[in-house]
Design a protein around this nucleic acid. Sequence first.
RNA 1: GGGAGCAUAGCUCAGCUGGUUCAGAGCAUCUGCCUUACAAGCAGAGGGUCCGCGGUUCGAACCCGUGUGCUCCCA
Length: 878
Amino acid sequence: MELSKNFQHTEAEIKWYNHWNSAGYFTSTPDDRPPYTIVMPPPNVTGVLHMGHALNNSVQDILIRRAKMMGFNTCWVPGTDHASIATEAKVVNMLRDMGIDKKKMPRDEFLKYAWEWKEKYGGIILKQLEKLGCSLDWSRTTFTMDEDYYAAVIRVFVELYEKGLIYRGVKMINWDPKAKTALSDEEVNHKQTNSKLYYVRYKLDIEGDEYITIATVRPETILGDTAVCVHPEDERYAHLKGKYCFVPLINRRIPIIFDEYIDKEFGTGALKVTPAHDINDYNLGLKHNLQVIDTLNEDGTMSDAAQLYVGLDRFVVRKQIAEDLRIAGNLVKEEEYSNQVGFSERTDVVIEPRLSMQWWCNMQDLSQPALEAVMNDDISFHPAKFKNTYRHWMANIKDWCISRQLWWGQRIPAWYDADGTLYVANNEAEATEKYKAAKPELAAAKPDLRQDDDVLDTWFSSWLWPMEVFGWNKQPDNRDLQYYYPTSTLVTAPEIIFFWVARMAMAGYEFLGQKPFEKVYYTGIVRDKQGRKMSKSLGNSPDLLELIEKNGADAVRFSVMISSPAGNDLLFDESQLEQGSFFCNKLWNAMKLVKGWETRCADDVTTTDVNFAMQWIDARLGQVSAEVEELMKEFRLSEALKTIYSLIWNDFCSWYLEWVKPGMEQPIATAVYQHTVTVYERLLQLLHPFLPFITEEIYHLLRTRATGDDLMVLQMPAYSTPDVTLLMGGTQLQELITAIRDTRNKNRLKPKDTIKLWIQTSEEAYYTQVLAILSRQVNAEQTNFTGEAIPGAISIVVGTDKLYIEAAAATIDTEAQKAEMVKEIAYLQGFLISVDKKLGNERFMANAKPDVIESEQKKKNDALAKIKTLEESLANLG
RNA sequence: GGGAGCAUAGCUCAGCUGGUUCAGAGCAUCUGCCUUACAAGCAGAGGGUCCGCGGUUCGAACCCGUGUGCUCCCA
């Protein structure tokens, strides 16, 4: 077969993905094997694949593929989140582009458009995950607004309402004036913003022309002021007890109140109080029984209650009122000021705190078992540092604002009758029943019930994800749920620890009495080379599909995995992508080399020369596979990949293949060829979870495979404990080769120049084993043992053995050799002193562990022997 | 204001339980090689005040304190 010069990733990716899929490797049904389950964090239907997804899903795919090889029945569930606010915004925009105004449209019609939009664009992101190689069980694909899922969300609402955990109430909420909806605290991002601090004086209602000056960054809220507050111990204002002042421009008479909440140092020490538009002011208002004047409309313009600027946008008014205050003589000064301002996570507009009637979920009781589970590691966090973050939030948890003034989402299952009485039920029929039961006198008449217009927060549906993807609502004891739940590992970003992780834990315990997952792996944030978070708005996120097309999915997976330990940010750099491509190339070339031997196999060639190499690589394979197992257990994926990378590139390609490589046009022993192919297969298997495509491709090129013999489902063998002597022998051989090559380089020998090698050692048996390999690797035409120094030869010391190199082409610099030996002896003597110091220290001998003492003793002996050898060699040089 | 974390080679970072198999990897740099798998490669080499200071310890990159600089999360 003709092999291409390089790995053709595009074709291979399509071929193998389809093959795995049609072979049924992605789908899972319960059986006798232990399950290994991951539910994918459902991306927003509005999303497109970006680097964050690449990292997150690569991690999940690696865990799934490895678990499959380890004998687990793996199930990885895909799906999407309806993302109420984000999707609604997209649909509104789409309609606007079509010249349609959402406001002029009935709810049903809007939802029809929204579903159309979802059908058209909602699956794109999942399709894109195929390109990355994700081994997802597509038959289980779930959407958070699927009929069953929708019903589950409604059921949960009703249950919590009946338990008294969900209630309706007027509170200060975060208002998004663009999306015109309430947001939860978690949906608000605080950003440092440059503002202006305005100092405004309010005329006092006393004799004379006296004022009190306040400082504010939001002068437009002055129109809603209902008090001015100062600290009770502030002497500057002590004389104002019981006095009043006037709000500028509108001359509302408001009291001056005293409260310890005030920071005397800030501004002038006097605070204007606007209970309708600031959470702290609101609390002050409650305490001091202040009037609440809401001066804003839902779109962020001034309301009638403001009296002035009615209908103008809040930011326009901010400028205008400053000017008007100046003209009126109330503006004392302005200064530059930097403060934290809340922005909507979805629309990125400035949030207005606003009093509003919303639905709330009491989190106090729900949070308890979820908090305990994480603190006692029943649910373990990786890395564990996020336990603190989690505890901090859970211990201070507030009620969750779950209603949104949107249409796209699960509509709140609450109905109001003509009197405004509330009926919470799973559907209208049930609500009607409740209504009739409550008001039997009206039962005969046609009930006039109106459903609440609001929908639920998206996260109020996604917190059910791990249970509802397995059909909890329809049949809580169904086989899938019994088998796959609790899921094994959740892989997600620390950003959504509160939004999602914590709430899933709460839902799991509340509705199933069980945790939703055993372990949580937090990925880092993907940043660009300058350390900035990759984001659409910055435009610094590379197009993932383009990267895959250009470099191959394997190279992309390699690049995101090689430098991202759990919880650490990933600085994405093109050079890692290169490293990934180069690695694929290396794998491909190694395959070409090995395949090239296939036709040169002969049964009558001795394996004696290379037995050592074969035994050694077996030992290394066993050793590394145990290391990888440990690393994977601890979720140290990047370490595991590095370890495998190094095993393949260094041990296998640079050492092993060179050691067993037959001479030009020479035959190779069939046994050696077979062994090499087998070792290569095992290496591919270790690597497969990380780089699935190229490994599967090479696996199939190495041998002709029966149907079903695919790397993806090849079960991991049990490796025996590696032979330590062999491993050390291999290291020693590498040291010998490197030392001789170094000497060759230093003596300006060309690769083609041959040498004669003499070895002076007490371990001839070892050398005999590796002699053939050693000779070939250093291009020695002749290798012999010797009992004494070879005059005129280059002399080097490796370990405690002396090597003599004779080369016609060499220009021997005895002085340089001597200088090097002197340097080495000096170093060893220094080292010896430090070891001796330890061994001579009574407290060390008394306190250190026996094996530490033993190893120090050995170091001492080794150093002594080496010094002796070096000194002898030095003497021989004269 | 509260919390979490980081500082190690020119760059990006590993280094888990304190001990010379511990000061390491990749990239970058230098030297030599078109060697019949791979120049996207091979063979070598150089490069460090493990942020400063103090402490604990027989022993500290690692533990404790402190200073400096930076990042993130929450309010």
